[in-house]
């Protein structure tokens, strides 16, 4: 009880501080705000800069992607780390590594009365039809993030959802046989390493961290702009790996209370 009161006080103080900070923001879409109009006699407008110059800088038509993965690449890298840390936190809290002998499950009505297993036939056939399409579309969303809405986070969530659908339709064991626990943790780490690796590679070649322009000799592109474009695709793939595997890891741990041997 006391801990709940203390937690409530902490949440209330943090929330009111955040609300207090929001009050000083310019209103949404305000054309006279410093970001949109620039500071008089000082910095020019940053929104105008992105709208007019981002295509020349990066050769990426979708300026949201170019801002997210290039100008603000540092921020996006740690967003991915936050997703990874969330997954690891759930792993640390829920995962039961030394499980006792499972008590025999009481036979559920599903096992007693579905003779022909008609439910599994209908749902299973639909999943067979749908899951490949979802995964193909996810790859399209990842690869097409430069030209249309999409990118690593969205495509990663789609891939994760396809695995969750498999776990819901069949059971958790089937989904884990496709993507087992050591592999999904490995892939989540590899995703972040790909992203950070692009940054470190830039530093090795003499640029700043995540300053993709200097990767031109490594990627064999026509100019530093195309190197930026291709590196953005690379980091999106890293983001997608981490997000998809962590999505599935969170589902698997939550649905089986950390034992990973039964599902919903």
């Amino acid at each position: 009880m006391l801990t709940k009161v203390i937690a409530f006080i902490a949440v209330a103080i943090t929330g009111s501080l955040l609300l207090y900070g929001v009050a000083d923001f310019p209103s949404f879409g305000d054309p006279n705000s410093p970001a949109n109009a620039g500071v008089e006699g000082g910095a020019p407008s940053i929104s105008q800069y992105f709208i007019t110059e981002s295509y020349k800088d990066t050769k990426v038509p979708n300026l949201v992607t170019s801002v997210l993965a290039d100008y603000r690449g540092y921020d996006t890298m740690f967003e991915t780390v936050v997703v990874f840390a969330g997954g690891m936190a759930i792993f640390a809290i829920l995962r039961v590594l030394r499980s006792k002998e499972e008590p025999p499950k009481p036979q559920s009505r599903a096992e007693t009365f579905v003779h022909g297993d008609h439910n599994r036939i209908i749902v299973g056939t639909t999943c067979k039809l749908v899951i490949p399409v979802i995964q193909l579309f996810a790859l399209y969303v990842i690869a097409h993030g430069h030209h249309s809405p999409g990118g690593g986070f969205q495509g990663g969530v789609l891939i994760g959802a396809s695995f969750i659908l498999l776990a819901l339709a069949a059971d958790l064991k089937t989904a884990l046989s496709r993507l087992n626990e050591p592999n999904y943790i490995r892939l989540a780490c590899i995703g972040i390493l790909i992203y950070a690796g692009f940054g470190v590679l830039c530093q090795i070649l003499g640029g700043n961290f995540l300053d993709y322009g200097v990767l031109q000799p490594v990627l064999f592109t026509d100019g530093p702009e195309m190197a930026r474009s291709h590196s953005m695709l690379g980091v999106e793939i890293g983001v997608a790996l981490t997000v998809s595997t962590i999505m599935f890891a969170i589902y698997a741990n939550l649905a089986s209370r950390g034992t990973l041997n039964e599902g919903l």
Binding site: S108, R109, A110, N119, I122, V123, T126, L129, V130, V133
Partner: peptide
């Protein structure tokens, strides 16, 4: 086509879950 496949299946799965739940 996607809706034609998935919407009846989800209805079926919900219905089956309800029956299983008694």
């Amino acid at each position: 086509v996607f809706i034609l496949i998935t919407s009846p299946t989800s209805t079926h799965a919900l219905m089956d879950a309800g029956w299983e739940d008694g």
